[in-house]
Nucleic acid binder design. Structure first.
Lengths: 208, 208
DNA sequence: AAACAATACATAACATTGCTATGTTATGCA
DNA sequence: TGCATAACATAGCAATGTTATGTATTGTTT
């Protein structure tokens, strides 16, 4: 059949693009392949063009997010876990701000949505555990509350990491999540303790 | 001295750019000036280049947002007004989705930040009125709570208007604002009534 | 093993991009 | 009336993404 496309070269180009994003260098086809020894055609054989490259970079962003969330060790306190997941979400945005911007800028179709889905569903599962633990009332829809947590996380990431707000505005996450989870039925004082513990979870502060 | 720059031409170019954004046509210097009879140099005399044009478009976006918020008629119920401002914020994003994207994509420096400032401070004032009306407790920092409302609004706009969530996810605004304002001290039942009334304020649903 | 076919990859060219250099026209002030 | 200065037009440049064409390499087939 065909000579195999080297998957090494593929991810090498993606990492190169991520590195150039991080260093604020303009990502052009020619500058992208410059250090790699490949020719500009590599971008077309592996990604079909520049759009495909950005799709792959976006995919990489969601993959890193998913693995970051996967690194959050769950506890017996599901509300703490929810806050820890939120902290990990924001830590990922801080660690890869330009990648985060690409993830949500102009087009989000993914070749493999499972990474993005898995990220959301780790929140959904935590909400569900909070329900069965009696922390949230039965009327709470896990997907809805997870989505609302995501809205808070993304709003903060967008405004305070890639946007006009200063970075320490990220601490707004704590009172906002407390408000959200309290309105879902959690006891205010217990909720505050849980969220603050989750916010300081070590998995959220790793450099990458 | 100098021949006056025609301010008509300036805003004509901005409106043309906004129109091309709306129609999803790529905004290039040549296509921008195509219908106007001007030459490409007009963009350089009026805006100094493409960056300046995008800055002006962003400014236009904030101006439209400010006038939209200004159209919200205030009432005796400051919590209703906060929700109405939030609804107007989202209605503006729905009315001008591509403009909204430009407002927060890659760079936010504004020639005149007063439009953006005024938008935030209309929220701050409403929070302050809610405090003096006894709806929020005294410990609430108006700027902080206003910022948190903005985070919710922007998170929703970014995900449900220019992002992957369906547009009807905007209704998450209601429970999220209720949660936020309740945690600021408002009575839950009264808060729900106020937010739902504000959410249906007519000023939020005007086409422009 | 040899010939072949198909695909990866290199080279070069193309249209279009933002931008600049240069020339031309119009305007306000002396 | 002249003149300096700004507005505008024209043309061209380097760089961009993309495509066309040629070459080399690999897996398959007889």
């Amino acid at each position: 059949m065909a000579r195999m496309k080297d998957p090494r070269a593929r991810s090498l180009l993606i990492e190169q693009a991520a590195r150039m994003l991080r260093d604020r260098r303009p990502v052009t086809i020619r500058s992208l392949v410059a250090g790699t020894g490949m020719s500009t055609m590599a971008v077309y054989t592996y990604f079909g063009g520049m759009d495909g490259l950005w799709r792959a970079v976006r995919q990489e962003g969601f993959t890193r997010l998913a693995s970051r969330l996967d690194g959050v060790s769950l506890s017996a306190d599901p509300v703490r876990d929810l806050a820890a997941l939120g902290a990990a979400y924001l830590a990922n945005a801080v660690a890869h701000p330009d990648l985060y911007r690409v993830m949500f800028d102009a087009g989000f179709e993914l070749d493999d949505p499972s990474a993005a889905d898995e990220s959301l569903y780790s929140l959904v599962r935590a909400v569900d555990r909070a329900k069965t633990a009696g922390r949230f009332h039965g009327g709470v829809d896990p997907l809805e509350l997870a989505t609302q947590s995501w809205v808070i996380g993304h709003g903060l990431a967008s405004l305070a990491v890639t946007g006009p707000l200063p970075r320490d505005a990220l601490t707004h996450a704590v009172p906002m999540l407390i408000a959200l989870f309290t309105s879902a039925g959690d006891d205010p004082a217990e909720c505050r303790r849980s969220v603050e513990r989750g916010w300081q979870a070590p998995s959220a502060q790793l450099p990458d």
